[in-house]
Structures are given as structure tokens and as C-alpha cells.
């Protein structure tokens, strides 16, 4: 196995806030890597630095052995790094089909017919359950639906590695399962994933390896079963042990909101 994505000692500050504080992370080719951590620990900033939406103050990002630190977003995308956004960034006044088609500019000319043919676009929309809305403007969709459009947009380009920022947020549980299946399927065909997600069941079930971020740095990394037992993770992130019971549905640890259930009239 070779390292496809390598982040070395990256730093990034906004004013006095150290969003990334010597963050290092390696994603092996052909894996599904998870990235978890409390709100504000720097996960999205790391995504922004990797994909060139923000420039690192220090440190390097390498993709496929090539140094891509500070390259323009379009260049990094062209090399095969795709991503979605936590707060969705779709083209509000374009239809869903048109939203998909914008990505056509980012793939080599000879693959455009294959990746962006009408049939494949409809297939992708069908996968996320939005076929009926193909001609609707993206701005008229709910947050969860826009999230699905983003997923279809990034998958359409068939990048080598896909960075997903909370793909399950705002998505109904059945569809979350389907998205997990789809990621697994694409992974078996060789696509690498780096996934930020708070839905523990999703992350634990899907990822080969999980990194944990806190205060701008990766504090732990390992297989899911190792990470969920790591006391630092339990303390900083989960706030208690993770149930393994069969009833532990989507939303994972929310099953433990004993105080709340007890308060029910």
C-alpha cells in the first residue's frame, strides 16, 4: 500500500485562532479513511488546505507523491482530488442536471462523453433519489437534498480521492445506508475516501482507519475498534463509551441520552 495523500505539519491561523496546529495525516491508497473530532477542531480547515481553498501558513500537502501545497483549487481538482462541503456549495440558480454538468470542465476531454453522458447523469441523480427534480433549481431544494446534489457532483468526476465533509448530515437514515454502500462499492473499484462525519455508526462501519483531531492536530489514529476504546477519544469527542448494542441506530451515541429519555412525560 502506498500513501496517496500526505499532510505534513500543516499550520493555519485565523487571527489569533490556530485552526491547524502542526497537523499531519496520511491516507493510504485504496482505503476509506475517517476523520472525527469535536466541532471546531479544524477538520474543515484541513479539507480547505488540502483542496487549495485556503493556503497553509506552514507545512506541506502531497498527493500521489507530488507536492501540491499552494496549488490553485482547479489544479488540485484536475489531479484527482474531489470534495464536498459541509455547508453545501451548489449552484443555486442552475438545475440539478446543470449542476452536475459544471464538473465536466474538470475531466479530460476524452473522458467527458463517458462521464457526463445524459444516461450517466440521470443514473447519478437516481442514486441520490433526485431524478424527479432533475430540472428543478438547486436553490429550491432543502439542505439535505442539496447535500445529495453535492455528492452526485463530486462522484461524477470520478476523482482518485474524495474528501467528504459530513456526507450523512441532514440525510435520512435509509439513504445514509445507501450512501455507505455506494462508497464501499466505489472503494472496491479503487477510489480512495477521506470522510469527516459525526454519525459514529456510519464512520465505524465504513472506515478502514480513523484519525481523531483535536485543537488543530491529529491526536490518535487507528482501526475503528482501537479508536473507539482510546480514552482520549472518549473524553474529547464521544463524552462516554460507545454502545455496541444492536439498537444503536443512526446517530450512534444518541442512544445514550438517558437523562432526556427519563425526562419524557
Amino acid at each position: 500500500m502506498t500513501a496517496l495523500l500526505e499532510v505534513r505539519e500543516v499550520r493555519k491561523s485565523f487571527g489569533g485562532l490556530h485552526a491547524l496546529n502542526g497537523c499531519s495525516l496520511t491516507v493510504q491508497e485504496g482505503t476509506v479513511a475517517g476523520l472525527i473530532g469535536p466541532n471546531g477542531s479544524g477538520k474543515t480547515t484541513l479539507f480547505n488546505v488540502i483542496t487549495g481553498y485556503e493556503r497553509a501558513d506552514a507545512g506541506t500537502v502531497a498527493f500521489g507523491g507530488q507536492d501540491v501545497t499552494g496549488l490553485a483549487t482547479g489544479k488540485i481538482g484536475g489531479l484527482g482530488v474531489g470534495r464536498t462541503f459541509q455547508l453545501t456549495r451548489v449552484f443555486n440558480r442552475l438545475t440539478l442536471l446543470e449542476n452536475l454538468q459544471v464538473g465536466r470542465a474538470g475531466v479530460p476531454r476524452e473522458r467527458r462523453g463517458e462521464l457526463y453522458g445524459p444516461a450517466r447523469c440521470m443514473e447519478l441523480l437516481d442514486f441520490v433519489g433526485l431524478t424527479a427534480l432533475a430540472q428543478a433549481q438547486a436553490g429550491s431544494l432543502s439542505y439535505g437534498q442539496r447535500k445529495l446534489v453535492e455528492l452526485a457532483m463530486v462522484l461524477a468526476q470520478e476523482p482518485k480521492v474524495v474528501l467528504l465533509d459530513e456526507p450523512a448530515g441532514g440525510i435520512n437514515p435509509t439513504l445514509i445506508g445507501q450512501i455507505a454502500d455506494r462508497i464501499g462499492e466505489l472503494n472496491r473499484r479503487g477510489m480512495t475516501f477521506l470522510v469527516v462525519e459525526h454519525n459514529m455508526e456510519f464512520v465505524m462501519g465504513l472506515c478502514d482507519v480513523i484519525s481523531v483531531m483535536e485543537r488543530g492536530a491529529v491526536i490518535a489514529c487507528g482501526r475503528p475498534e482501537e479508536v473507539r476504546k482510546d480514552p482520549r477519544v472518549l473524553d474529547a469527542y464521544l463524552g462516554g463509551a460507545l454502545d455496541d448494542g444492536p439498537d444503536d441506530g443512526p446517530g450512534g451515541p444518541t442512544g445514550q441520552t438517558e437523562g432526556i429519555e427519563g425526562a419524557q412525560p
Binding site: 482547479g74 470534495r83 459544471v102
Partner: peptide, 24 residues
């Protein structure tokens, strides 16, 4: 045309369009 779609994408979110490979 594709050219027009690129322009409309720039109108809605230029950075995102560039990220998707549009030569803005």
C-alpha cells in the same frame, strides 16, 4: 452551451466552479 453554463456557474459560486475545473 457549455460556455454559458460555466458563466452561470461563476455567477452562483465562482470559487466552487474553479474547484470543479472551470477555467474561470
Amino acid at each position: 452551451s457549455r460556455f454559458g453554463l460555466d458563466l452561470l456557474a461563476i455567477r452562483d459560486d465562482e470559487d466552487r466552479a474553479r474547484g470543479l475545473g472551470v477555467r474561470t
